[in-house]
Deep mutational scan, measured.
Amino acid sequence: MAEQVALSRTQVCGILREELFQGDAFHQSDTHIFIIMGASGDLAKKKIYPTIWWLFRDGLLPENTFIVGYARSRLTVADIRKQSEPFFKATPEEKLKLEDFFARNSYVAGQYDDAASYQRLNSHMNALHLGSQANRLFYLALPPTVYEAVTKNIHESCMSQIGWNRIIVEKPFGRDLQSSDRLSNHISSLFREDQIYRIDHYLGKEMVQNLMVLRFANRIFGPIWNRDNIACVILTFKEPFGTEGRGGYFDEFGIIRDVMQNHLLQMLCLVAMEKPASTNSDDVRDEKVKVLKCISEVQANNVVLGQYVGNPDGEGEATKGYLDDPTVPRGSTTATFAAVVLYVENERWDGVPFILRCGKALNERKAEVRLQFHDVAGDIFHQQCKRNELVIRVQPNEAVYTKMMTKKPGMFFNPEESELDLTYGNRYKNVKLPDAYERLILDVFCGSQMHFVRSDELREAWRIFTPLLHQIELEKPKPIPYIYGSRGPTEADELMKRVGFQYEGTYKWVNP
């Protein structure tokens, strides 16, 4: 592979701008107003304001973009700056750019259920340069409990009458099928589907988006991507930290609602779906819905739930269990780990287990898709061969690698495990991989909904998990304890083995 010439960040961002501006969906010269509902909250200060700053800094926003914060707290732009700027990672050389960014910011205080507050917000936006005809993007960085009041008031008082209007809704989209349907029906009564952007930030990850290209742009994968060759698929999300004093919020939802029903299920769809007619948003989402419709409700015998306990040999936070978090209700049975087996009941995947695993306070930070292939028929190497695996590593250190057998150097035919490896950090030294939120917010500006969740996708996802969630809430089974920093409950490994996964433990990928 030829040595790549190092590029400056300015040059890299210039390439990104060229890609972005050559499309006809990006209205570079139009006025846009980006409204952050819930501007005083954690999500706004840690993710949304920093993301908008990065896009502005790199010249990736339309030229005439204004940012308006809205929340109940009586704040000023200076207050917003004070709480969000520490997350910007701005350099001293960017000081003038930073001043320009905050000059485009404003803030309006108001209630979430008060019509007069929204009329005041609308008047404020109209007073901005060309504000009355601007395109408006409303980001709901809010708890779902206020979605209905907020969307109703936005629709009645704050819509642009000339430009387009788009609304970005953060997960969780309800707690179960019934609450999700209620919320979807409410929002759909106010906005068209092409105006609604239900954001799952995992769909903005580079390697998640790469799944489609790997599958449908490489001839070698087509013939082997089926039940005849693939023994099982494992989708993993692991965090090495616990709730760390923020367990009160987590306890309301648990690990299945927080990660599995959305992030992991979306990745499953991209692995299992048929080739779409095109890369058009609805063509892709149509195929994802077909996959979900082929999955039956989760069966309790295919589920393992766990909850982390303190590690007596650990240090600091590792010595504390979930129930030691003062914000967690006493005696909570909320799971911090889950392993679930699903089956896609169609011709391509009949009988292939899709194993979804996620948890907190585990032994490493990792998100990946792992396809394990069947054993080689007619073994001539005296059971020395391990199964081939194709691994798409989402985070950290984005990579695609194939675990395969090669001859060990020497005189004899002794096979050993090795890999074919594409590590993004080595291959793409001159490429700026956008943060997931950067990519998705740019998608909203461009009107691309491919990486957002459609209402029928959402409904099918909740259909699969709601009976299990209701059973857990009714019966309150005690989750299996696992030690902070471990791989999780051993019962999860036993479940995976029972459905056909072979864990060798003899080879570990190392970032080159």
Rank of each mutant, 00 (worst) to 15 (best):
V208Y: 07
D200H: 04
T91P: 09
Y139I: 03
E193D: 02
K97F: 13
A78N: 10
N226K: 08
G110V: 01
S8G: 11
A217Q: 10
I162C: 11
L55W: 05
S132M: 14
S29V: 07
R17Q: 13
F191E: 02
K89V: 12
D113E: 09
E206L: 10
F56S: 04
L177A: 14
K238A: 09
Y112N: 02
L75G: 08
R246Y: 02
A90P: 09
R74E: 10
F21G: 07
I167H: 08
I234C: 11
G247T: 09
K47E: 02
Q11V: 15
Q111E: 10
K45V: 05
T151N: 06
S184I: 10
E239C: 07
R227D: 04
I48P: 03
Q209Y: 04
I80A: 09
T236K: 03
Q161W: 12
H129D: 13
Y107R: 01
Y202G: 01
I230S: 01
L121S: 01
L60S: 04
R104G: 11
I230G: 04
R9E: 15
H186C: 11
P86K: 06
F26D: 12
T243W: 01
F21E: 07
N185S: 12
S180P: 05
A90L: 09
H155E: 13
Q22A: 13
G110I: 00
I230H: 00
A90W: 05
G23I: 13
P50F: 01
P86D: 06
V233R: 01
P62V: 11
I224K: 04
L235H: 03
L214V: 08
D79P: 04
I196Y: 02
R175V: 08
E170P: 01
K89F: 08
T145Q: 11
G174H: 05
I154D: 00
E18F: 15
E252V: 14
A39G: 04
N122T: 14
H186S: 15
K45Y: 04
K205C: 00
K89H: 07
K205E: 01
I224Q: 14
F191I: 09
L190I: 13
K47C: 03
L211N: 01
V150T: 04
E93W: 06
E156C: 11
F26R: 14
G38S: 02
Q83W: 04
T76N: 14
L98R: 05
N210S: 12
R81E: 08
C158G: 11
